[in-house]
């Protein structure tokens, strides 16, 4: 099975065997328990669970808020990546390092902090509430929490592409009299968009499943501010295993479809980057 090229190196059977065993025991078998459990539901029960008004409202909030947050991050993330790669200013390194905070800060801490900031008497709530903007315990708050969680994805996926872009095409466009905006639109953006969409899709996927940072700020009102992961937890706490399992299956399948789409996008991005050296 191993290629002859690497025939000298030892340990193929051992490491592959261990890896597959560990993967199966910890990931594949437990995940298949979810599908096994779902398969034991009758179709009518399954549909009743996953298409109940409460579940539909939860999908709408989760998908809607995740999309809004991903789009916000696509915009600001592109600006942030551009500024970090192209400009030199004091504190740039610090800002660059800081972008990963949402990866490093435990979600529960992010959740209680954002809630405290946006509550009526919080630092931000005090400014927003008189303006009639209610963030805490509303879909807006959910979106803001998801924007925090998804912030690093677009920056970290666009940044390396921007760094690797060869300046030749840009220089050529400029010397042919293209304006800066034309150069961006016609030369830079075509090279950047796969990374931009990949980053936004990663942020979206993460947001769909996010629990800790949202559960405190959402208010958790069924039909209004209840996200899908919370609905699953609520059903589980009421020992409604069938309901929790059915809805979890819908979410898991959505995540897998997203994962495949992201893989395809990354393949396009790699092709573009490789093609940037030769003919487009």
């Amino acid at each position: 099975m191993a290629s002859p090229r690497n025939g000298v190196l030892p340990g193929f059977g051992l490491t592959l065997g261990f890896s597959i065993l560990y993967l199966s025991l910890l990931v594949l078998i437990p995940l298949s328990a979810l599908f096994y459990r779902t398969a034991s539901l009758s179709l009518a029960d399954f549909v009743a669970e996953v298409a109940s008004p409460r579940a539909l409202a939860a999908y709408q909030l989760s998908f809607g808020a995740s999309l809004a947050a991903a789009l916000t991050n696509a915009g600001f993330g592109l600006v942030l990546a551009w500024v970090l790669v192209r400009y030199r200013f004091p504190g740039r390194e610090l800002v660059d390092a800081f972008v990963d905070l949402p990866f490093a800060l435990p979600t529960a801490v992010a959740g209680i902090t954002l809630t405290t900031l946006l509550a009526k008497n919080g630092w931000l709530g005090r400014i927003l509430e008189p303006l009639g903007i209610h963030a805490a315990y509303t879909p807006l708050g959910v979106t803001l929490a998801l924007t925090f969680i998804g912030l690093p994805f677009v920056v970290r996926s666009v940044q390396p592409v921007l760094e690797d872009l060869e300046s030749e095409a840009e220089e050529a466009a400029a010397s042919l009299g293209a304006s800066r905006w034309q150069t961006f639109r016609r030369v830079l953006f075509p090279a950047l968009w796969p990374a931009l969409v990949t980053g936004a899709a990663l942020a979206f996927a993460r947001s769909l499943g996010e629990y800790g940072s949202v559960v405190f700020i959402s208010g958790n009102m069924p039909l209004h501010t209840e996200i899908v992961p919370l609905l699953i937890v609520t059903k589980l706490e009421q020992y409604d295993y069938a309901g929790a399992t059915a809805i979890a299956t819908v979410m898991l399948v959505s995540s897998f479809v997203l994962l495949l789409a992201i893989n395809a996008l990354q393949a396009i991005g790699r092709k573009r980057l490789a093609g940037a050296g030769g003919a487009p």
Binding site: L28, L31, Y241, T245, M251, F256
Partner: peptide, 19 residues
Amino acid sequence: LIDLPFAVSPVISGLIFVL
């Protein structure tokens, strides 16, 4: 398959062990 756990919601990651 190795990347799979990153695509799974934390809540579902807990749920599968409960199941």
